[in-house]
């Protein structure tokens, strides 16, 4: 799946987008360090204790990532994003593709069958894409989905029998929180006043 380039609209600069979310900038750098093969799951012990349960839960997460990839694709093809937002959307979609690949690997390790993505038209209908008329609409949807995804990953961790998968889910949640923070900065919304906002 490739994102189509659309004509840029200079409503929001890339520098402004990232600059308002300094945490996100740092986190992107951290992500590139962390992704260097840290997910060596093959040799861990205990992975087979309750394979069917963990595989099912990981497959649900995979469904979530399929939807996230589709959401950014729909956004990119909408034609309403300026170039800066589009470029960040492409970056975030690439993160979700990385998540998808890790989750597929995990399901296969447990002897499961990774769930496949649906047609993009099904995601468009489920996400109410026909109601997305502006860049602001798309950013609000992305903010909502990224927040939900971060919370979903954190909320599933206690149900996983294998701590290595718990670690993976925590890393996925951190990526989603990074996306959410950058998107909140892009629309100029304040960050939460209270600690422990996610989860």
């Amino acid at each position: 799946m490739h994102i189509q380039q659309v004509p840029p609209k200079k409503q929001l600069s890339r520098r402004g987008f990232i600059g308002r979310g300094t945490t996100a900038t740092l986190s992107v750098a951290g992500l590139s360090v962390l992704s260097g093969g840290a997910l060596a799951m093959a040799s861990r012990k205990g992975a087979k204790e309750e394979p069917s349960t963990d595989a099912g839960l990981i497959n649900t997460a995979l469904s979530l990532e399929h939807e996230g990839i589709a959401a950014y694709q729909i956004a990119a093809e909408s034609g309403v994003l300026n170039d800066a937002v589009l470029q960040v959307g492409i970056l975030f979609q690439s993160h979700h593709k990385g998540h998808r690949d890790e989750l597929i690997k995990a399901v296969r390790e447990l002897g499961g069958t990774p769930v496949e993505a649906k047609a993009i038209s099904e995601y468009a209908e489920a996400l109410g894409a026909d109601k997305l008329k502006s860049q602001a609409d798309i950013l609000q949807l992305a903010i909502s989905l990224e927040l939900g995804a971060a919370n979903a990953y954190l909320g599933v961790i206690p149900s996983l029998s294998d701590h290595e998968f718990g670690h993976l889910f925590a890393r996925l949640a951190a990526d989603e929180a990074m996306h959410w923070t950058a998107l909140k900065g892009a629309v100029g919304e304040a960050l939460p006043k209270n600690a422990l906002y996610f989860g």
Binding site: E125, L127, G148
Partner: peptide, 17 residues
Amino acid sequence: YQRRCGACHSIDQNRIG
């Protein structure tokens, strides 16, 4: 509901859940 359930669920659409 939006924050905790919205990643997978909607009121009027079948999604992940």
